[in-house]
Design a protein around this nucleic acid. Structure first.
Ligand SMILES: [Mn+2]
Ligand SMILES: [Mn+2]
Ligand SMILES: [Mn+2]
Ligand SMILES: [Mn+2]
Lengths: 218, 218
DNA sequence: CTTAATTTTTAGACAAAACTAAAAATTTGT
DNA sequence: ACAAATTTTTAGTTTTGTCTAAAAATTAAG
């Protein structure tokens, strides 16, 4: 399995998770930041290797084999992200780029020992679940912050958008995983919110509140 | 700089260190376990990028730029090997293969932080010096064990042959870095030696004693 | 239900990195 | 010095992964 094949598998896995339908070639190309013709080529190659099912003009779907491989790459990605933050003083907005490379290192022992070294973490620095050695992914109970009502309380458990820009914005607002969040006010006009994060009271836009996940506590 | 280019640079660097002469194409091919024609192709590409000087039929020599890049890769390789042994319970014969992959990860911050995390180690698990951030490589004072005379004493500081087979053999004899070694007897007939390693007295072949480095202590 | 817009695929090229086979240059042996 | 052996380079293919341009299929609009 080449680096490029693994990146495509991961992209297709994520797209399939979101929509639960066959993934269009264009969607793959967009996620991979490449051209549709390149995506078609790759999809054919992966189909040849039984990693996905592909029929021209209909989307593609991963086979169990393809899914299993994608999950392994995701496991590695998230374990490495955890290592970078926990042990090498990376911030949560810096890890993705490096993990994107580290996820392709081939060594079962390496990843098994890394998991052990980290103390078998359940989630990565963005709150995403780390698949176990058998490929099981725990489902994290979460709601998007925008859906909470006035007076509702919750704990921040993840983000939808893991872009560096958004994560840095959250840092500036002092919002991080595990923080207690309470909705003080919802503005009907633009769907912005006034929320209390731990001690601080701040206002956030609708766009931001749609990208923050919470576990409701009341 | 691609993965393959980096591996060639490293190979050429090592060959040039040994002989201090222009490196023949065949030597490169042999070290890279490839064909001479492939080596020629690559050498041309690297020459194009000013990483080495190449004139057909005369050997190649790295430019300062090429040398500096090779040393960076070696630094990464040795830091990762150290991490694998110190933190992930790898043995010294298992690390090379994985480090061969990890050495190509591109991230200045990653390697800087890894170095810090490890406590700025001076040598890797095989006793080889770890280049510093500026590319300086400490010269380790060492002598090949075979050269010691009867009654001489020393400390094991490295190996010449880092192959898994040889390292496992050393493990079986309970020889590792830092061990006190004393020459009890030298057999003129086949150049084998009887040595005392810490508590144990063992006999080793000429071939083995030529691949063990010691720092003489008496 | 046709035409227009969009999506997807095909065809043809290109760069990186490898290979085999053959030619050319260099070195060695007598 | 000349032939033989060795080393090195060239020429021509192959595979992976990308691209542009053009053709074909599908979907959307009037
Ligand atoms: Mn990746
Ligand atoms: Mn993540
Ligand atoms: Mn390598
Ligand atoms: Mn080493």
């Amino acid at each position: 399995m080449t680096l490029s094949e693994e990146n495509y598998l991961k992209a297709i896995f994520n797209l399939e998770e979101q929509t639960h339908k066959g993934v269009p070639t264009n969607a793959i190309a967009e996620m991979m930041e490449t051209k549709a013709s390149s995506a078609t080529d790759m999809v054919k190659r992966l189909s040849e290797k039984d990693l996905l099912k592909y029929k021209p003009y209909q989307g593609t779907r991963l086979t169990p084999k393809g899914k299993s491989h994608a999950v392994k790459v995701i496991r590695k990605h998230r374990l490495w992200e955890t290592f970078l933050v926990e042990n090498l003083d990376f911030t949560w907005d810096e890890v993705h780029e490096v993990a994107e490379q580290l996820e392709h290192i081939q060594s079962d022992k390496l990843i098994h020992q890394l998991d052990k070294f980290l103390g078998y973490p359940k989630t990565d620095p963005h709150g995403d679940p780390i698949p176990d050695e058998e490929g099981n992914i725990a489902k994290i109970e979460k709601k998007v912050l925008a859906e909470l009502q006035q007076e509702d309380e919750g704990v921040c458990v993840g983000v939808d958008d893991s872009s560096s820009a958004f994560l840095k914005y959250l840092d500036k607002l002092d919002i991080s995983l595990g923080n207690k969040i309470k909705v003080i006010e919802k503005e009907a006009f633009d769907n912005s919110m006034v929320i209390q994060v731990e001690e601080n009271t701040i206002s956030i836009s609708s766009l931001a509140s749609k990208n923050i996940y919470v576990r409701k506590t009341s």
